[in-house]
Nucleic acid binder design. Structure first.
Lengths: 199, 199
DNA sequence: GTCTATACAGTGATAGAC
DNA sequence: GTCTATCACTGTATAGAC
């Protein structure tokens, strides 16, 4: 609000999109959230509202890239990377009180942002899949678990918001952590993995 | 379009809400989808757009009540009820090409429809939890699995839409079916159940 | 009941003063 | 860069003719 660098303005705008959706995020609300007049907003974003949304989504993706995706790739311990992912996810989504802009725009908008949204989710699943493989899961299991996890996070955010109980999100994240826990060798664990795999 | 009974009009309006969200669903689009003038729409729904949304959500809930919730309660075979639930869910959401209006409104709107949305999801979880108990799952397991399933369906719809691959939804539904399959007695299955429970 | 005409607030966007 | 004034348009909603 008081600071006027591009990133802080983008943050204010992101809040408006998150709260009201793309259609509901009017320029009037943007001016209120940023403390800037319409003219100033168009100085920042010459192409208007659509550009704002694009840049907000890019900003979100960039944050996940640095805080979650890259650590998942780079961490020498895949299990530690996974724990870090869940920690960051719970912090980012404020333990279920905040929703996912990518998910919201995926449901609300048709084509305008589909490419950015798709890229974000595909990227998340890819790095997670590879991390799970390094953690000891088989190829098919890792792919299935990655999709299950990314889908599970989105579902948990929707359900927590719908039931107005953020704790729903926390409970789901806990369950997902366990589900991804390192597959020890041995008959019992292999049985568990078959179960998770749906065989 | 051509038929003008209240239910078909409500169906047309539901499509508009589903496609454009609450804010994006303008009365102009309603007139195009229903073939009715604005005046006629206000004759059907004197309180305007908000009433339309309320009635659409009620219509959705009613459909699930009859096609899914009640069968889950009434079916003598809980396992058969579960399979029927997944069949109906996959049909209703058109194998991942259709999204959930309740989930969309949960993310997009703040308070206007929160009570209706919450009731719908709580009801679904309750009937599913009881069905899982009848199917042989323990109390805690049934509660956890019910939340996991309802959350999983929402997440699968979001992810399928986001990645523009309806198959994502079909894959998730298959995995959920397996996860809920009847818990046979025996050490191996109990181990699996402990895993799903996160113990 | 359905339509057209209309009211009027709010929309995204632009121009131009400072 | 930021503001205010203004644009053309669309939004929801209403009134009244048929």
């Amino acid at each position: 609000m008081v600071r006027r660098n591009r990133d802080s303005v983008l943050g204010n705008i992101a809040e408006v999109f998150r709260r009201y959706g793309y259609e509901g995020a009017s320029l009037g609300r943007m001016t209120a959230a940023t403390g800037l007049g319409k003219g100033s907003l168009y100085n920042f974003f010459p192409d208007g509202k659509e550009q704002m949304a694009h840049e907000v989504l890019s900003h979100v993706h960039r944050w996940f890239e640095e805080e979650i995706f890259r650590p998942l790739e780079a961490d020498v311990s895949p299990d530690h990377g996974l724990q870090r992912m869940f920690d960051s996810v719970e912090t980012y989504f404020q333990s279920g009180r905040r929703i996912c802009l990518m998910g919201l725009f995926a449901l609300e908008t048709e084509d305008a942002f589909s490419s950015q949204i798709r890229t974000y989710f595909v990227r998340w699943e890819e790095v997670l899949e590879l991390c799970l493989q390094r953690s000891g899961w088989g190829e098919h299991e890792a792919r299935d678990l990655a999709e299950d996890t990314v889908s599970g996070i989105q579902g948990a955010l929707v359900l927590a918001q719908a039931r107005r109980e953020p704790d729903v999100f926390v409970r789901r994240m806990h369950a997902l952590r366990i589900r991804l826990s390192h597959p020890a060798s041995g008959a019992r664990q292999s049985g568990i993995r078959d179960c998770l795999q749906g065989r």
